[in-house]
């Protein structure tokens, strides 16, 4: 698409996209990541729709599946 992708570090990326294409590219990225995300998890977490984490106070918090965010 003639864009520029830069890795800022960690899970932060930056994209420069031609104005004609940016909406379709962003839409495609969001849809594709939504399809990919469940595949990164073990079955139990995937069925539960996220990860249960026990914190230092022994209470359990829930973190939903990974989601891609574009700003």
């Amino acid at each position: 698409m003639g864009g520029f992708i830069g890795h800022i570090g960690g899970d932060d990326f930056m994209m420069l996209l031609p104005l004609d294409h940016w909406e379709s590219v962003c839409g495609q990225i969001l849809r594709s990541f939504e399809v990919m995300a469940p595949g990164f998890y073990e079955d139990a977490d995937r069925l539960r729709g996220g990860i249960q984490i026990e914190n230092r106070q022994n209470s359990i918090t829930f973190s939903p599946l990974l989601a891609c965010r574009l700003r």
């Binding site: 930056m14 599946l65 989601a67 891609c68």
Partner: peptide, 9 residues
């Protein structure tokens, strides 16, 4: 267009 990408969770 500039877009910043990151992941929730």
């Amino acid at each position: 267009a500039a877009a910043y990408v990151d992941l929730d969770n």
